[in-house]
């Protein structure tokens, strides 16, 4: 059986909020290392990969591999019934029909309990190869969100060019063009504002802004976001969570010109 207790319901609320517009039905794969989720969006352009390590829960117990097929719309409805600060416990039997969610308020004696019916989801699982990326950019997640939002007003796509000079986000649209240039930057007082660019070779790739704007819904999960790029491979956008847990998005580049 599965029993996983989260100190704050907020974490799961934010994760589900960040991915629910991209994927609708998905399996939460539970085993002794934690709870993982991998799903492609309907158009097979983007891939979501979430890992909530067992260390992110206290306690965490899962004796056997259990796949919880959940509709994220249903999960959102139930998670809205939790206060951000509530303690959240997920429970399921070994061959479950439902997943049970218990929300406990630390301040009051209120305990609420919900069951969500599970679905059989036949999902193809993709193997994501270990990649040595040519460029890795770590930057404030709010800055990345702003860039994507600003440029999406002008164009459907953005080119991300990374060189010794820094990183340049460029777009061309019907009304004109826009570009934002960032260089490595260290702020000793506010390290969450740092921009770090780790480059082994120059990279230039073009991506759909619609998807990037969607990924940025995860900005509330982490002050910083990591962008990993190599020519002709999908972009990795990573929001690191505590205890080595993470929310990652992969986006296939645009091809040709």
């Amino acid at each position: 059986m599965l029993e996983a207790r989260l100190e704050q319901a907020n974490l799961l609320k934010k994760v589900v909020d960040a991915i629910k517009d991209l994927v609708q039905d998905c399996n939460f794969d539970c085993n002794d290392s934690g709870i993982a989720l991998q799903a492609m969006d309907n158009s097979h352009v983007a891939l979501v990969s979430m890992m909530l390590k067992s260390e992110s829960f206290s306690p965490f117990r899962c004796d056997r591999n259990i796949a919880l097929g959940i509709n994220l719309g249903s999960l959102t409805k139930v998670l809205r019934c939790a206060q951000n600060e509530d303690i959240l416990t997920l429970k399921a039997e070994d061959a479950p029909d439902v997943v049970n969610l218990v929300f406990e308020s630390a301040e009051t004696d209120r305990i609420s309990e919900y069951d969500i019916k599970l679905m059989d989801i036949d999902q193809e699982h993709l193997g994501i190869p270990e990649t040595e990326y040519a460029a890795t950019i770590t930057m404030p997640s709010a800055e990345f969100q702003r860039i994507c939002r600003d440029l999406s007003a002008l164009s459907e796509s953005v080119s991300i060019e990374c060189s010794k000079e820094g990183v340049k986000f460029n777009c061309q649209g019907d009304i004109g063009s826009g570009s934002i240039h960032l260089r490595s930057h260290t702020n000793v007082d506010k390290p969450e504002l740092n921009v770090e660019i780790d480059l082994t070779e120059p990279v230039s790739l073009t991506f759909s802004l619609k998807y990037l704007v969607n990924f940025c819904k995860a900005s509330g999960l982490s002050n910083q976001v990591k962008l990993c790029l190599s020519n002709e491979v999908p972009l990795l956008v990573e929001y690191a969570l505590s205890n080595n847990s993470y929310l990652r998005f992969y986006l296939a580049p645009k091809i040709g010109d």
């Binding site: 097979h44 193809e124 993709l126 992969y250």
Partner: peptide, 14 residues
């Protein structure tokens, strides 16, 4: 005109 690649063409089925 640019085409959009599919993520499944980069990552193999596990």
């Amino acid at each position: 005109k640019q085409g959009q690649g599919s993520i499944a063409s980069f990552f193999k089925k596990a």
